[in-house]
Simulated assay, not measured.
Amino acid sequence: MQQPSRPKTRRKYDADFKNEVVKMLANGQTAAYVSKALGVSENLIYRWKNQTQGVRKVISEQSELALENQQLKDRVRQLETEREILKKALSIFSRQT
């Protein structure tokens, strides 16, 4: 007698599990080994790895933009100070005549 077939359900993995799998790859373990050890398909492991790299790239770009933004703010502050000094110097020299 045949068992009634059950529909396949998708397993859900939390972010910590995904991060640990990616760390295992970063530590030199192969995707095939991790796949067999944890019962997760290799394709899924590679997808998690690519997503993690994408997130790291975005974070890197954001930190570069934040650094550039801070440098520009510092430059604006410096230029405003110089402008104020020049205004004061102009008012001093224009009074003396």
Rank of each mutant, 00 (worst) to 15 (best):
S91W: 03
V22Y: 05
R56V: 02
A37Y: 06
D16V: 12
L25D: 00
R75V: 04
Y46V: 04
Q51N: 10
V55R: 15
S94W: 00
V76F: 05
N27C: 07
K87S: 09
V58F: 07
I59P: 01
G39I: 01
K8H: 10
R75S: 06
I92W: 04
G54M: 07
E84A: 13
N43C: 11
D14S: 12
V34S: 05
Y13D: 01
L65Y: 03
A37G: 05
L25A: 02
S60V: 01
I59R: 10
E82S: 14
Q96A: 08
S60C: 10
Q2E: 09
S5F: 09
A37Q: 15
K23L: 13
N43Y: 06
S41E: 06
Q96C: 03
L25W: 01
R75D: 03
Q62T: 08
E82G: 10
K23Y: 06
G28L: 02
E68S: 14
D16S: 11
E68M: 12
L67P: 00
R11Y: 09
S41K: 13
G54H: 05
S35P: 01
E80I: 10
V21R: 00
A31P: 11
R10D: 01
P7A: 15
V40L: 11
V76L: 10
R77W: 01
Y13G: 05
L65T: 02
R47H: 09
Q3G: 09
Q71A: 15
I92S: 06
Y13A: 07
K23H: 13
A26N: 14
G28I: 04
V22A: 05
R75G: 00
L79M: 13
Q51T: 06
L90P: 00
F93Q: 11
A31H: 05
R75Y: 07
Q71P: 03
A66R: 13
A31W: 02
A89S: 13
L90D: 02
S5Y: 04
Q53S: 07
S35N: 02
V22N: 03
